[in-house]
Design a binder for these strands. Structure first.
Lengths: 163, 163
DNA sequence: ATAGAATTTGACATTCTTTTTCAATAATGC
DNA sequence: GCATTATTGAAAAAGAATGTCAAATTCTAT
């Protein structure tokens, strides 16, 4: 996969803001564009460390924010309170099915939803920059588990491990 | 509006877990059911304080978590890192249009999306418990503002007030 | 009603993440 | 090369979420 277009867009944003292109920013953007999925600051920091151990966490944090400002990244939240960052390219999608019992995340995609989103943005006169769409539920494995729990005891403090 | 059904559901959940019904829990649930929209812990705490100043923040926090566990509340996140809680009733919706420039939030609703969500849940074999659907963009007012900024100076540190 | 056991509460402490600060470093323009 | 300005990274600060624990409350069984 070639991320030249992303790098160019970031470069363009940087210079439009009158900022400098630095080695750190390039490396962090590189890692961000090449590391698919939704990851926390910590996870990106780990990856960046492997490329260049001298880069600090603060710089990774700031560069991720910068990527968000540039419209290239999106900050997303599931339900654990940790911010995650994801590529905000038009051909990437931000629809997730999250199991509230085991935390499993499945990426989902439905073109009809994309279409409706654009309609809604038009209706409310918004310039759409991105979206977060999370469906929360119980996956089949956890549902079966819960079923078993419930059949066993009458109502014995219904499993603490709900989170 | 009558929230008896909600109170009953909460009561039922409480006793099913073998917990006690207390005045605090009743008051907090009352405030939660009567205070429409999506609010932070702090906001609920303020409201609860007005009803009964002796109730502590910790208890509000715990009761909101409890309401989530009971499936009556949902924890939602926009992009400021603060958890908000919203009624998770089947006839309430969790679709928001958020302006990333001024922070304005508009509630949106489209029955087609609801329908597709159920289809997707079926497809991936999930028991749907709720969802969060946020569209991020620039509202018309902020878009106009941004346009003006851009035309003025060439690229004078393009407005710090981006958040 | 009342004692005893268990739960709940609320102030405070702790943990964890996010954000700011500031001196040192690096880049840029002259 | 030198002065100016931006950037970096360690550490501190701020802020939110969660844990602790003694005191208060609730429940259950007399």
């Amino acid at each position: 996969m070639d991320n030249t277009a992303f790098h160019n867009a970031f470069q363009e944003f940087i210079s439009r803001k009158g900022m400098n292109a630095t080695a750190q920013r390039r490396i962090i953007a590189e890692v961000f564009f090449r590391f698919p999925g939704h990851h926390s600051l910590e996870e990106f920091y780990q990856r960046v460390q492997q490329q260049d151990p001298s880069i600090g966490q603060t710089t990774v944090y700031r560069t991720l924010k910068l990527l968000c400002e540039a419209g290239l990244a999106m900050e997303i939240h599931f339900s654990d309170g940790i911010a995650r960052y994801e590529l905000a390219a038009s051909d990437s999608h931000h629809d997730h099915m999250v199991c509230v019992a085991c935390g499993k995340v499945i990426e989902i995609y439905d073109p009809r939803i994309e279409k409706i989103q654009h309609e809604l943005a038009d209706k409310y006169d918004f310039l759409l920059r991105g979206h977060v769409h999370n469906l929360y539920g119980i996956c089949s494995a956890c549902a079966a588990q819960e079923q078993r729990e419930r059949q066993k005891g009458g109502a014995p403090a219904t499993s603490e491990s709900d989170e």
